[in-house]
């Protein structure tokens, strides 16, 4: 049996979502058509609007429908002297939730990975260089992931940033809170040892 063309098109388009195959797409389509027309319409308008209007923030490359994202617009952060460099917008959310950092961000939207074909030109480093040129920033915090690729990216960005007189720091590697040393992998543990701090008492 074949579905009518519109239904088939809906199912085929739903398959573009990550982790959604033919069966799940079919289930989603039927659910929307049968039980949740309102939700479906809302989804359609939201998707339509988002795809047309959302672009990248001109300063930090985060997703936004305005020229500058909310973080870059905030008056307090506009004058901030530190910049945190992360790989993805999800990392910004994670750091924001800690409330630890009050400066500006720069989002690379990936990491250097030659085998995947991601080179320095794909990370928006020209935009980053322009911002560092303004001389507003005194510190650059490299918060790329603690993977080999993340480390390579951190080195590359640090090399670029070293031209402008500023402090370059890298987030610490260590044992997670609530973890047990016994179960921490050797790599993390050796990083934790080499990066140990003086104990303040």
């Amino acid at each position: 049996m074949k579905f009518s063309p519109l239904v088939q098109e809906l199912i085929d388009t739903l398959k573009c979502l990550p982790g959604v195959g033919a069966k799940s797409a079919q289930r989603m389509a039927f659910h929307l058509l049968e039980r949740n027309r309102m939700g479906g319409e809302k989804l359609a308008t939201a998707l339509g609007k988002a795809m047309v209007n959302i672009g990248h923030c001109q300063q930090c490359r985060n997703f936004t429908e305005d020229e500058l994202c909310q973080i870059c617009q905030s008056p307090k952060r506009k004058v901030s002297e530190s910049m945190c460099i992360v790989e993805s917008p999800a990392d910004v959310i994670a750091i924001e939730q800690t409330g630890e950092f009050q400066g500006r961000y720069f989002i690379l939207m990936g990491h250097l990975s030659p085998i995947d074909g991601i080179g320095p030109d794909d990370l928006g480093l020209d935009i980053l260089a322009k911002q560092l040129e303004t001389g507003q920033f005194k510190e650059v915090i490299l918060a790329t992931n603690p993977t080999v690729e993340g480390e390579a990216t951190a080195h590359y960005v640090a090399e670029l940033a070293s031209k402008y007189q500023l402090t370059i720091s890298r987030i610490a590697h260590g044992v997670p809170i609530g973890g047990e040393l016994e179960y921490v992998d050797g790599n993390t543990l050796s990083h934790a040892f080499s990066g140990r701090k003086n104990y303040q008492y």
């Binding site: 030659p114 085998i115 080999v148 480390e151 390579a152 080195h155 090399e159 992998d185 050797g186 790599n187 050796s190």
Partner: peptide, 22 residues
């Protein structure tokens, strides 16, 4: 399982190792 410590390479040496992998 890990057999030993990771080879901690930096800068050009890390890029060279990437080159070998590629």
């Amino acid at each position: 399982e890990a057999l030993g410590k990771s080879y901690s390479l930096e800068k050009e040496r890390l890029y060279s190792a990437f080159y070998l992998n590629e």
